[in-house]
Write a protein that binds this DNA or RNA. Sequence first.
DNA 1: GTCTCATATGGTAGCGCTACCATTTGTCTG
DNA 2: CAGACAAATGGTAGCGCTACCATATGAGAC
Lengths: 342, 342
Amino acid sequence: MTKPRSRRGGGRPTIADVARKAGVGAITVSRALREPGRVSEDLRRQIQAAIDELGYVPDPNARALASARAEVFGVLVPSLTNNVFAEVVRGIYDSLSDSLFRIQIGNTHYSGLEEERLLQVFGSQRPAALIVAGIDQTLGARRLLENAGCPVVQVMETGPDPIDMMVGFSHFDGGKTAAEHLLQAGYRKIGFIGARMDPRSQRRLAGYRAAMEAAGVFDARLITTTPVPSSVSLGRELFRDALAKMPTLDGVFCNNDDIALGVLFECHRASLDVPKQIGIVGFNDLDMMQVSFPSITSVRTHRYEIGTRAVAMALAAIAGNRPDRRIVDLGFELMRRESTQR
Amino acid sequence: MTKPRSRRGGGRPTIADVARKAGVGAITVSRALREPGRVSEDLRRQIQAAIDELGYVPDPNARALASARAEVFGVLVPSLTNNVFAEVVRGIYDSLSDSLFRIQIGNTHYSGLEEERLLQVFGSQRPAALIVAGIDQTLGARRLLENAGCPVVQVMETGPDPIDMMVGFSHFDGGKTAAEHLLQAGYRKIGFIGARMDPRSQRRLAGYRAAMEAAGVFDARLITTTPVPSSVSLGRELFRDALAKMPTLDGVFCNNDDIALGVLFECHRASLDVPKQIGIVGFNDLDMMQVSFPSITSVRTHRYEIGTRAVAMALAAIAGNRPDRRIVDLGFELMRRESTQR
DNA sequence: GTCTCATATGGTAGCGCTACCATTTGTCTG
DNA sequence: CAGACAAATGGTAGCGCTACCATATGAGAC
């Protein structure tokens, strides 16, 4: 003789069931769950017993509706398969796994319009915080973020004008450092090879250019780029193009490590000695860079940490104590390896 | 003189505002949004105009609460950075990007307990569908999935006893095919190198073993595995271990492509000729396999398609027409390349 | 012309939870 | 010992939406 359940809910226990069983008011159960400090030890125990017995799990939808705030972190990244963003997202997940917060990821496909659309969708949920990749939001996206009514963290890059908070590093400096390293190692005809060429890649290119110009060796024909998404095989092709255009090339700074690996393989295939004939520098320092033969010099970035720091800053802001440093520059590290050891 | 807004909601327009402006009942607006066919052309236009003017966006939380069903796909994968799962997830996102459904990803970290916990959390939202990686759920997880009250798709693998629906392929057959290929190519002392050794890797190993035993060349010392997470550098180390244990090794079937790449690099470093002295086969066929020097034979799997098919099946089930084939085997394809061309 | 019946629309009553505002009790002050 | 005040608990009224049922309207059957 089970008591008839209301037509909807599907028979799961509600906060009222718990309250009845524990002999308290519903609001006290709610408080025991959210602010245990404000409920006496005794009641807390009783309530917990009732919860365990009934197998009660709070309904996040009802909670969000009543409190006008969902326990959701919205995360917007341009790609799900690019290891770089996957690492950031992993950092976010790991930092949030013990908390009540859920995570909702949006894939912008490197499109500002898509980012705006997703922001609209995410905003309708009243998320607890938003984490977005990059600093080149469209005006519309920027406005949506400013009016989101929750902490916002821009990640991957630092820049002069944060919407709210920022965690990242300077891609310009990264590119500059890479090019300077090649110059110091004695390379002169140093090419830039870049795929996708999203804003961050553009700034790496700008850094490369600044270093090359400072050394008086810049030449526009050294640059080979494409908007096509990056891949190892594309790296190989672009390097062949670059060589065809400029046969005296003696080094390359690659947009990222996939491209660098493609270049390395093509060097093997064409019997070009690395690092003697060609120096190679990658970007991001994926695990494989240190294992390849020869190992590849790369600019190490702190992707996982970007994710964890972004969450830490957002959580602090939610808790009411906004960090005094709104922009966190995590820097990068040039990993010198065999591929530039002439 | 704006009319005072209720203390909560934050001033965003609600369905009631739209209804008032359009001069219809709230329920008609609701219907116009969800079942446009049931509302006359005229009203639909009026309502759309009101929506546009007010900038109304439905509140998914309220919707979920009222309908006891959230427009959310729950997705559980063991890793976010492993390219294999990232591809599946990308397929899921792309298939769902035009729909109203949101996606919530959970990272189980290859732990059954964590999977159960996440299932509990996800279930509390009453998701529209659940997609989970693998077929080795714990008993508790299985029960949760059976009682989720929504379509469930197990992905990555096929097996005899689906909870609901399944999309994947046979890892046993994949491993067997790889080993048979090496045998046919003339290799005899064929090692198995595996990292992480999750259930799918175990089954690839079993397939390898079956092929080796059938050929009468199986030897337990040919197997080198570790529970440590996979990486290119780990591939290199494991290969050195394998060689130390069995110096006459003339081929390796690797758990996955990262390991295979590590093996290749170690061969370069140790001046072992691939494919003459060592044959290499990978698994998954990442882009880089076809570009490496020499290019690496690998078992191509259809990861992106697994994601899209899983969504298609779930959507069909939600719409009421469950596919008659509950188990979809997408197979795999052996990509023969230079690394096994003796 | 009456009687069905499908179509189009609306009203009411929640969904499960929490914000807001009591109310009660106990503790401390002077 | 009265008065003030903090701590602990509860009642009520929604949050924004949709399920359910009712009603109105017009088309078609005979």
